[in-house]
Amino acid sequence: PGQLAMLRKAQEFFQTCDAEGKGFIARRDMQRLHQELPLSLEDLEDVFDALDTDGNGFLTPEEFTTGFSHFFFSQNNP
C-alpha cells in the first residue's frame, strides 16, 4: 500500500517538474521551479545532480521515482 502511495506522489511531482509533459525533466525545468519553491537555484542544481544518477542531463520518471522513494520511505519508516 505504501508503495502505491509513493508511486502516485512520485508521478504527481514528476508532472509538476515536467510541466510541458515531455516525459523527462531537463535542468532548465528544475530551474523553473525556483519561482514556485522556496529553494535557491543552487539547491535545485544539487537536487537535479542528486537525482540524475547516470549523469546524462535528463531525469527519467524512473530516476525521479528512485530518488523520491528513498525520501518517502525514510519519512514513513523512522
Binding site: 509538476t16 519553491l37 529553494l39 539547491d43 537536487v47 542528486a50 523520491f68 525520501f71 519519512q75
Partner: peptide, 29 residues
C-alpha cells in the same frame, strides 16, 4: 570520506526539495 559527506548533503537537499513540493501541493486548494 568526501563521498559520504556528499551523499548526506544530497539527501538533505532532496528532503528539502520534496518537502517543498509536498507543502506546495497541500498549500494550494
Amino acid at each position: 570520506d568526501p563521498n559520504m559527506k556528499a551523499g548526506a548533503t544530497s539527501e538533505g537537499v532532496l528532503a528539502n526539495f520534496f518537502n517543498s513540493l509536498l507543502s506546495k501541493k497541500t498549500g494550494s486548494p
